[in-house]
Amino acid sequence: MRCLWFLPVAIVFLPAVPVFAHSTVIEHRQTNAIEIRAMYDNGEPMTEAQVTVYAPDNPSDPWLKGITTEDGRFAFVPNPDMEGEWDVKVRKAGHGDFISVPVEGSQQAAQSGKNWQGGGYTTLQKILMAALGVWGFIGTALFFARNRFHQT
């Protein structure tokens, strides 16, 4: 009986003691992370591409290095004290690109929402642009062939 008083005290303090067996603890906190999605121009994700992040105050030394996931994604939490352009470089097998992500405080990040920014053209836009380009070449060919047409 003498030691029973110790039991509630121990129960109260138990959660504060680190636990090394059986249970796991997952903590979370909400942050303004930047997520990038790297893909080839045909929409295929750049899996396991190397990512290098450069902070605005030091564009020559990497601030963070990592690898994209299977769907070409990579997320990082920029230092909120460092406002400005965060450069993210993605490269795999000699192919890659870099993007500058502006970080201007939490309000700006909240406004960005879940919409992807940047990226390339849609398929329809590409077809239209390619058609215009091809028409330019055909026009050049027709222009230089005009004398031949007149002769025949």
Partner: peptide, 27 residues
């Protein structure tokens, strides 16, 4: 005289990079 032919081949070269051929696991 050769420019029409060169223009048409340039057009073919220009659009060729947009045509993807699937070659698993990539294209």
């Amino acid at each position: 005289e050769e420019i029409p032919r060169a223009s048409l081949l340039t057009a073919a070269f220009f659009v060729a990079s947009l045509i993807h051929i699937p070659l698993p696991p990539a294209s």
